[in-house]
Structure formats: C-alpha cells, structure tokens
Amino acid sequence: METITVVVPCYNEEDVLKSFYNEMIKVASEIENVDFEILFIDDGSKDKTLSIIKNYSMIDSRVKYISFSRNFGKEAAIYAGLKAAIGDYVVIIDADLQHPPRLIKDMYYGIAKEGYDSVAAYRKDRTGESKIRAFFSRAFFKLASKITKLEFREGEEDYRMMNRKFVDAVLSIKEKNRFTKGIFQWVGFNVKWIEHENINRVAGNSKWSIFKLFTYSLDGIIGFSTVPLIISSFLGLILCLISTILGIYLIIKGISTNSVISSSLISILVTLLISGVQLFLFGILGQYLGKVYLEIKERPLYIIKDQKILVNKDIEINEEFKV
C-alpha cells in the first residue's frame, strides 16, 4: 500500500500532543488502503515533549521520532523530517492544531486522484490575531511576492502535502539558510490551494514573537532576492544627488541673500544624513555577507541526539548518537 508520512516539528509542545495524536489517529482511520507514518521532530524541547512522543512510539508502531541535541529551529526540523520520511506522500503539519488535520484527506485526494504534485493550505482570514500581527503578515506576503518574483499567497502556511517528486526537489536544494515557503514556490510543480478558518492553539503559547517573525521574513527575502542590494545602490545614488543639490542651494542662497549660514548646523545635518544611510546600506550588505559566511562554514543543519525511524518499509532503526 501507499504510505503517507506526517512530519510534525515540535518544540515544547507537551500540552497539545495528546489532542494532536488523537486527531491524527482519527484522520488515519478515515483514509482507506493507505499506511500512515507519524514522524515527530523534537527540536530540542525542554519540557516532556520527547518522553510523550517516545511513549506513543512504544504503543503505536506508526509513531517515529527524531530528537535534536538542541533547538535548531523549525526550518531544520522540516528539512530533517523530509529527509527521513519514507512515504509516497509527505505532509508537514504543526502540532498545535492550528493546522486542522482533517484537511489531510482532501490533500491526499488532490494528489492521488486529481493529479496535483502538492496541495497546500492557507488561512482565509486572520480572525483572532492581533491587528499588528495581521498587518505585518499581509505586508510581508505582498512585499515578498514583488521583490522575489515568487507567487506567495497571503495567509499561506508550511502545512501542505507533497508527492515524492516534489519532496525530492525540495531536498535537492542544499542551502543551510532555508526559507521553506520560498523553496516550495521556487521548485514549482502543480499546486492546489485549499483554505481554512484561522484556528487558535488548543493549549500552550506560540513560539513565534513579532521579532522572530520579522527576522524570519527578512531571511526569506534575502534568501530569494538581490533587490535589497539594488535598493541600496539607488539610495547611495540618491544620497549623492541630495548632497550635491543641497550644496548648490546653500551656495546660491548665501550669494543671493548675502547671509551667513551656520557651518556647524550644515555639518551636523549632512553628517547625520550620510551616517544614517551608510549604516542602513552596511546593514543590508552585512545580511548578505553573513549568509555567505554561514554557508561556507558547512556546519550541519542539525545534530541528532536520539531517533526511531524507518529507512525503508521493512527495516526499523532505533539508535542513539552521543554528541
């Protein structure tokens, strides 16, 4: 039979795992003639997340897990899950039930019956979220689409099902600084979109602060576009023009009015203008240089401390790596 691997990145999710597991078992029972593999990726949790997952793996052979030596981030967890997944179809889903598991059935139908390579979910509204968070989210998707020339959909999530061809294409991209939403768009293929209502977490708190979301968005734009570098060049040119025009204006004004303009005031204004723009430009360049620096180090994206996975449908591996 065909197999669906459900990849579940987890970080301190002890409060939601029971509800999530029960929902997944219900969904698995509703899809006939398909095997399920539930692959939890413990991203260095500090609570009882890993022990709960291990307990499920002992009572349910479909439950597998990979545990990192520390918190490496969701992008690393997604990559590890895709790499270890054995399924003919692979789903990425959050454990907090903000991604409704019931959609997996529709996703499977879209790929297996309708011929799509991937079926992705998006939230049709931001009901229940703060206005500031919703505003920045909408702004990011619009800005990212224009700058990167990739077709981001407002409200899109990491929640999607992919066939093996799509998964292999994503894994073929070896960069360390990963922005999965951008990679999904970049590889192309035929994608079907399905919408759902915004759902609040069943328990616990979100691990994504506004600052983390901002830096994550910045990584995504920098990783898929050189437009910020072009903007920095234009800003430098504009600064030169402003400085030239300002200098000519002050000379003409001084001659025509026969007045003395404070040289200290002029120096302060020009210095502040130039310094501010330079810092901004250096910041953009620094982001790109930083990404290159991290890539050439060739550090692993994650380190596995413990795991129980399948390398194929017949051989099970359960081993611990000391780090």
Rank of each mutant, 00 (worst) to 15 (best):
F68W: 08
F68Q: 01
S69F: 09
N71Q: 08
N71I: 03
G73K: 09
E75D: 03
E75A: 06
A77K: 02
A80F: 06
K83G: 07
K83W: 01
A84H: 13
A85F: 03
G87Y: 15
D88H: 02
D88Q: 06
Y89T: 02
V90K: 06
V90W: 03
I92L: 10
I92N: 07
I93S: 02
D94M: 03
A95H: 06
A95Q: 03
L97K: 02
P100D: 13
P101I: 03
R102D: 02
L103W: 00
L103S: 00
I104V: 09
A112S: 04
K113P: 04
G115I: 09
D117M: 10
Y122H: 12
Y122F: 15
Y122P: 10
R123N: 08
K124N: 10
T127C: 05
E129T: 14
S130I: 07
S130D: 14
I132Q: 09
F135M: 09
A139T: 02
F140I: 11
K142S: 15
K142C: 13
A144F: 08
S145Q: 11
S145G: 13
K146A: 15
K146P: 11
T148M: 11
T148Q: 14
T148F: 12
K149V: 05
K149R: 08
E151S: 09
F152L: 08
E156C: 15
E156G: 07
E157M: 13
D158M: 14
